[in-house]
Design a protein around this nucleic acid. Structure first.
Length: 96
DNA sequence: ACTATGACAGACG
DNA sequence: TCGTCTGCCATAG
């Protein structure tokens, strides 16, 4: 296993500001993960205290098993979802 | 060593 | 815009 990567991913996810969202691909790039799939893997194990609800797929749709749960939390943080989808062009986190 | 699976992404029709 | 197929890398059986 790669503990370092594991920790980096947690860091990145934890760094996502409120009212912003990021895609698995972004997290992977920032954390240096070879593929976005690993990001999902990490979240599945360590999701605990991390704001995993701010991580969406490239399409702006939440992961299948999360359903509307994630959208509900986002809406509560000020990220409206239109028809089960978030406007990434607007709410996508731009780390700068 | 091989196959199947998965919190994904990009290309295609 | 949407559904499907393929590529991706790590784990589990």
């Amino acid at each position: 296993m790669d503990e370092a990567l594991h920790e980096r991913v947690r860091d990145v996810v934890a760094a996502i500001p409120e009212g912003r969202v990021a895609t698995y691909g972004d997290i992977a790039a920032l954390a240096g993960a070879p593929t976005p799939r690993l990001v999902g893997r990490v979240l599945r194990e360590d999701g605990g205290d991390l704001p995993w609800h701010r991580v969406l797929r490239a399409t702006g749709k939440p992961a299948d098993h999360l359903g509307g749960e994630q959208l509900a939390r986002l809406a509560d943080e000020g990220v409206p979802a239109r028809d089960g989808r978030v406007e990434l062009g607007r709410y996508r986190w731009d780390p700068r």
